[in-house]
């Protein structure tokens, strides 16, 4: 009786890791090509863009908000950086300038959702529209390409045999882990998502923390946008479309509660991996893309329902 209960809490706590484990076992049996070091690196590389964005998203959702504009940020950062480089800017300055732009987006998102107490879902839906519009206006809907060779390194380079995007992603997870667990900012974020009014009355500056979370989310997304640009070597105004769903799905699968205040960054990483392994495995099994969508949706529903049932029990 007692042991059963412990088992249940154990499974509840680590549900996402079990899902990941079973996924890997399943695909290893189903496809002979799945279980290999190359494929493993491949999965990580493919997921690095979403994986990086999920780090920033986790911060915003933990405060009790959400950021739907990440796809727009990815696109805008890409085209701005590309246009600047084409017009002769040094890539480093082009990158810094486009990241500064992403920070500005974060400020705008925080400004409207915090100062006017608007629903962040609606605010960021609006900024998403604006950003996507800007991306098309800036490019005239024509892809931009022709950057210097050195710019490719970010998205396509390796350190040893490990692709640089993976290194950046892992570094960001480590930093996020430390921030959330050990710093004043991280702990305040958790508190704000749990009960904003109670936290305000303890003297913690809500405004500062919320702005920081949104800016962090946008800038981290900006970094993902740069990596994407470097990897594809072309700036497409449509580059970011649909990312918000993958990113939020990863975070929520990983146990970040949409009402804020709960969840761990390690879980987010696992959540993102679950989705990535699923795509990769199905690809290896020659499942058509449309069936992949259906399957992903079902896994998502199953995982969050399972989580909820265990938490309640």
């Amino acid at each position: 009786m007692r042991n059963m209960k412990n088992l249940k809490t154990f499974f509840g706590k680590y549900a996402i890791y079990f899902v990941l484990f079973f996924e890997i076992v399943f695909f290893s049996i189903a496809s002979p090509y799945f279980l290999s070091a190359t494929n493993f690196v491949n999965v990580l590389r493919q997921t690095s863009i979403v994986g990086i964005m999920a780090v920033g998203m986790a911060f915003v959702i933990l405060t009790g908000g959400v950021d739907l504009s990440v796809g727009g940020v990815t696109a805008c950062v890409g085209v701005i950086c590309a246009k600047l480089m084409i017009s002769g800017w040094n890539p480093v300055f082009a990158i810094l300038a486009s990241l500064a732009f992403s920070a500005l987006v974060g400020i705008v998102n925080a400004f409207f959702s915090h100062e006017f107490k608007l629903n962040p879902m609606i605010v960021t839906l609006a900024t998403l529209q604006i950003l996507e519009g800007i991306a098309y206006i800036v490019t005239g809907a024509i892809p931009v390409y022709g950057f210097t060779e050195s710019f490719k390194v970010i998205g396509q380079g390796h350190v040893g045999s490990i692709p640089i995007p993976i290194i950046i992603m892992i570094a960001l997870y480590v930093i996020a882990y430390i921030i959330l667990k050990y710093t004043k900012f991280g702990q305040s974020i958790y508190g704000i998502g749990g009960n904003e009014e109670a936290v305000r009355l303890t003297g913690i500056n809500i405004r500062k923390n919320k702005y920081s979370a949104y800016v962090l989310c946008s800038v981290v997304t900006g970094i993902a946008g740069i990596i994407l640009l470097s990897r594809t070597n072309t700036a497409q105004p449509s580059a970011g479309s649909g990312y918000e769903m993958d990113v939020i799905a990863g975070a929520v699968l990983g146990g970040i509660s949409m009402s804020g205040g709960e969840g761990k960054i390690t879980g987010v990483f696992a959540g993102v991996l679950v989705m990535a392994v699923l795509s990769n495995g199905m690809l290896m099994m020659d499942v058509s893309e449309y069936w992949q969508w259906v399957t992903k949706g079902i896994v998502m529903l199953a995982a969050i329902t399972y989580d909820r049932i265990l938490k309640k029990g």
Binding site: Q187, Y190, G191, G194, N195, A198, I204, G261
Partner: peptide, 15 residues
């Protein structure tokens, strides 16, 4: 106004 209910005693005291 006083507590973040889904957090620990320690967390609440620390705030």
């Amino acid at each position: 106004q006083g507590l973040v209910l889904n957090k620990s005693i320690f967390f609440n005291c620390l705030l």
